[in-house]
Design a protein around this nucleic acid. Structure first.
Length: 474
RNA sequence: GGCCCUAUCGUCUAGUGGUUCAGGACACCGCCCUCUCACGGCGGCGGCAGGGGUUCGAAUCCCCUUAGGGCUACCA
């Protein structure tokens, strides 16, 4: 009988803040590994810190993961609901003499620690209560795990190989607080083991915790899983990413008009590579992802590269889908905009927008009734000299049988030639007339979506201005 | 302080002892394309942190230094 080992990974955030880029990448790697192996990926909320855990953060984390498209198997698991299990494990450790009650107060511990620091010693618990006779459960106490006094704790990291730390470096860690609540190191071990997690993929800030946890695995009679520690994500100043670096929460990127596909691509390429390939779809990532290709060194997050990636994904995305994602951004500027409007305008903007915000801005011309001319644009292009050509353009649009871009292109060129002008000499004034700006989508495309009536209205308005200049001059 | 982790262009990375005076991408700078802005195409700038070993041969292996990061909580 062959035993098939199914891969099972987990993302285990503590709901003490928003999901940030580092956490999102950890989640992504766990998700990718599970999906690439046809395994399971579960979401576990580590809410054992009652003080700092907040339900709204749980909501935000879930919303972020959904936005990225990282779906988990089953229901989210909350550690706060599994206290009985943890208490049972602690009682077992106690009864097996693998843990003990410690009656030292926090104050005593704190002063001892600072004294040790002052004396230049290792600030460790002095194990006063480790071998105390007669353990009273009625007195206030914490429960500490009996870390072996000799030997070493080691584990295999997928990327780094064997990591070993002498047990003399390790403290007797607290596994249950005075108030009876349980602590992180105990709980992760129990859960990872009980849930059957085969591969723990987490931030390398946990690498120093792992040896302690390995001792716990042994003490509880569990087999440790495979560990993979992923590096941190840094800001431009090479410091750990924080508010100072701009967007901290993943949802801020959503609100700035980035595509989930682009964020996933970005996060994957930050600390992982597949030859020279830069652009990946989610499916390709699942297909090509391997743990061994993860980089161990910390990576600096470069927003300019995200911009580029976002533009690339915008360019290749299906128009309808893109319109759906862009619509909220358009409606923020123009509340009456519809899905149809967005779909009509997408082709004009998808080649020239880096974000959905830029895309929505680029659509302004379509929704604006009264064109407000930029001063520089007006002065340069709405001139007396430009009046005649503009009038000819109006005639052209009036008489043009079909306002598709090919016809317009052909007719505009013909007109330019007849007038002895370059195409740009008529295209620029028309652009200003239609948008008030010198930068916009192509004029033929704009005329096409605006339609004959509206295009003529705008050209008429511009020509009136040009005429008034003419009369002032005279 | 102690312990642990990391180190290729400004940034993300390819590279796992020899077809590499180190390849790609972003950014930047030229040129081309062009109705503007973009897109795109072509080209350029730019790197193995430093020092010792090992080896016929080192970006690749080992050691030291330096730099950055983490842990050292009744946080996770």
């Amino acid at each position: 009988m062959t035993q098939v080992v199914i891969v099972k990974t987990r993302f285990a955030p503590s709901p003490t803040g928003s999901l940030h880029l580092g956490g999102a990448r950890t989640a992504l790697f766990n998700w990718l590994f599970a999906r690439s192996k046809n395994g399971e990926f579960v979401l576990r909320i580590e809410d054992t810190d009652k003080e700092r855990s907040k339900p709204e953060y749980v909501e935000e984390i879930i919303e972020s993961l959904k936005w990225l498209g990282l779906d988990w198997d089953g229901e989210p698991y909350f550690q706060s609901q599994k206290t009985a299990l943890y208490q049972e494990k602690i009682e077992t450790l106690l009864s097996e003499d693998k843990a003990y009650r410690c009656y030292c107060t926090k104050e005593v511990l704190d002063t001892k620690r600072s004294e040790m620091m002052k004396a230049g010693e290792k600030p460790m618990y002095d194990r006063t209560c480790r071998d105390l006779e007669g353990q009273e459960s009625s007195r206030p106490h914490v429960v500490r795990f009996k870390t072996p006094l000799t030997g070493a704790a080691s584990f295999v990291d997928t990327l780094r190989g064997v990591v070993e730390v002498g047990n003399d470096e390790l403290d007797d860690l607290i596994i249950r607080r005075t108030d009876g609540s349980v602590t992180y190191n105990l709980v992760v071990v129990v859960d990872d083991a009980e849930m059957g997690i085969t591969s723990v993929i987490r931030g390398d800030d946990h690498i120093a915790n792992t040896p302690k946890q390995v001792n716990l695995y042994k003490g509880l009679g569990y087999e440790p899983p495979e560990f993979t520690h992923v590096s941190m994500i840094l800001g431009k100043d090479k410091k750990r990413l924080s508010k100072r670096h701009g967007a901290e929460s993943l949802l801020e990127y959503r609100d700035e008009g980035y595509l989930p596909a682009a964020l996933v691509n970005m996060l994957a390429r930050l600390g992982w590579g597949y030859g020279d390939q830069e652009l990946f779809t989610r499916e390709e990532l699942v297909e090509k992802f391997t743990l061994s290709k993860i980089t161990m060194s910390p990576a600096v997050f470069d927003k300019e590269k995200l911009d580029w990636l976002n533009a690339q994904h915008i360019k290749t995305m299906d128009n309808n889908e893109l319109a759906r994602l862009a619509l909220p951004f358009v409606q923020k500027r123009h509340p009456h905009a519809t899905q149809e409007d967005a779909e009509k305008l997408i082709p004009l903007l998808k080649e020239r927008s880096r974000t959905l915000v830029e895309m929505a801005e680029g659509m302004d011309f379509y929704f604006t009734r009264e064109i407000r001319y930029e001063q520089k644009a007006e002065k340069k292009f709405l001139t007396e000299k430009g009046l005649k050509p503009l009038e000819r353009v109006m005639e052209l649009i009036e008489n043009c049988s079909d306002l598709d871009t090919e016809t317009l292109d052909r007719e505009f060129r013909k007109l330019a030639e007849n007038l002895g002008l370059k195409l740009k000499e008529i295209a620029q004034p028309v652009r200003v007339a239609l948008t008030g700006k010198t930068v916009s989508p192509g004029v033929f495309e704009m005329i096409n979506v605006l339609g004959r009536r509206e295009s003529l209205n705008r050209l008429k308005a511009a020509s009136d201005i040009m005429r008034s200049i003419e009369s002032t001059v005279k």
